[in-house]
């Protein structure tokens, strides 16, 4: 089994846009259901949502600027780490993500094992 990180970008209601509306509540429920189903299968390794703010540190001079860094639809709003047989299985897993119902996208990336 390999580990993969699914990065979530955009999404109208996902974490950073969530408001206290029924849509947002339904959306949270959908995310929870998805996470629970992965947990039940034993493939969920970790997950965290991110706030839509932060700082950016760049360059040799380590210049600090305020976020948001890019357009909202490109911003990373959270991640999930899963175990899967290969990238194809990881992609299949990502298709269950509710972010597609809210116009977002998922980036599936294998986690690199660093050899000494």
């Amino acid at each position: 089994m390999e580990k993969f990180m699914l990065l979530f970008r955009g999404g109208v209601n996902h974490a950073h846009n969530a408001k206290d509306s029924q849509a947002a509540i339904d959306n949270m429920q959908a995310w929870r259901t998805w996470m629970e189903s992965m947990a039940q299968k034993g493939i969920l390794v970790g997950a965290e949502p991110l706030k839509p703010l932060g700082k950016q540190v760049t360059g040799k001079s380590k210049k600090v600027t305020d976020g948001p860094f890019i357009e909202a639809k490109e911003m990373v709003g959270g991640y999930v780490t899963v175990s899967a047989k290969d990238i194809n299985e990881a992609v299949e897993i990502s298709k269950g993500c509710p972010i597609f119902d809210e116009d977002g996208k998922v980036e599936v990336r294998p986690i690199q094992s660093m050899e000494m």
Partner: peptide, 8 residues
């Protein structure tokens, strides 16, 4: 495991 993620 769901307890370890702020999502859940």
């Amino acid at each position: 495991i769901l307890l370890t993620s702020e999502y859940t």
